[in-house]
Design a protein around this nucleic acid. Structure first.
Length: 293
DNA sequence: TACCAGGATGTTG
DNA sequence: CAACATCATGGT
């Protein structure tokens, strides 16, 4: 049993609300108040569950014979996933400059950005999500994971892990097409899979770089534009100011929350977001959360 | 049927 | 550099 202390501002309820936003989600499972997930660590699949008890998160590893390294790895993973180390008070302080955002912070008090500790996962996911609605995006992800990913069975249920870059890089364009991937989407996923598999792109390396250099390296890869780069930077690299300004979901949420007649233009969003400086990605996440209703 | 969906790339003026 | 055109696919 592993215990993770939680910070002052933390809402497990809001976290669960985000984690259960789509029924087709296949990279984690929520059963009651328990979150289950499989990770591939050093080539082995490990299943663990997370519960919120009293004032801490309780993690149980269900796969037998795990090492100390696995414990450390999962602990780190959850800390990143639920963003336990962000200075939320600082975000809330910034949010006070904007009445609308301040209101969201009150509604969703304790909501931490649900991240993606694995950069490869956020890139694959954001490429899948390009230009299509979220529900269809979840369908595509489900097909990708269930057709090409490894799984394990626990308690009569099958749990899947994201296919590795090596696995996806070994596929061809034609392997994706029967699953309703467009040619461009399939090609973009192959591009980043190869970049990771061949070591041209590594999370460890990128993490050391300043904001602009990370963005430049990502955007160099065909298929990663401004939206995808910023999405992955906020979800996987803790760049809380990364701003996926082209996001249609953000546009809709901003229109709703500010009571605008039309969706805001990119230019307008940039000026509106000046108030969120330092936390534009976090603000974006809060606006997305408002779409859940 | 036309238009939209958590865009990206290439071309044109 | 900004404004279009094109890409592909499912949902409404």
């Amino acid at each position: 049993m592993i215990y993770l202390p939680i910070p002052k501002e933390f809402s497990f309820t809001e976290t669960l609300r985000f984690l259960t936003r789509n029924e087709k989600e296949c990279l984690h499972t929520v059963k009651g108040e328990t979150v289950l997930k499989v990770l591939e660590i050093d080539g082995e699949l490990v299943l663990f569950s997370i519960n919120f008890i009293n004032t801490s998160l309780q993690i149980i590893i269900h796969t037998p014979n795990f090492s100390d390294e696995v414990v450390i790895c999962i602990k780190k993973y959850v800390q990143h996933w639920f963003d336990l180390e962000a200075n939320l008070s600082d975000f809330y302080k910034t949010a006070q400059k904007d009445e609308v955002l301040a209101n969201l912070c009150q509604r969703f008090y304790g909501l931490r950005m649900v991240g993606m500790p694995d950069l490869f996962e956020s890139l694959v996911w954001s490429i899948i999500g390009q230009q299509i609605n979220l529900n269809f995006a979840y369908s595509l992800k489900e097909r990708l994971v269930k057709n090409f990913g490894k799984s394990l069975v626990y308690d009569g249920k099958e749990f899947f892990a994201l296919p590795t870059p090596e696995r996806l890089a070994s596929l061809s364009l034609e392997d994706f097409l029967p699953h309703q991937f467009s040619r461009s989407k399939a090609q973009y996923i192959l591009n980043i899979s190869k970049a990771f598999a061949e070591g041209d792109l590594a999370q460890k390396d990128l993490e050391q770089l300043p904001f602009d250099e990370i963005r430049e390296k990502l955007v160099k890869i065909k298929g990663i534009g401004n939206w995808t780069a910023n999405y992955s930077m906020m979800k996987s690299l803790k760049n809380y100011d990364a701003f996926p300004v082209e996001d249609v979901g953000l546009h809709n949420a901003v229109k709703n929350q500010y009571g605008l007649e039309e969706k805001p233009r990119i230019k307008d969003l940039h000026s509106m977001a000046e108030k969120w400086a330092g936390w534009k990605g976090y603000a974006t996440f809060y606006f997305w959360h408002s779409l859940l209703g």
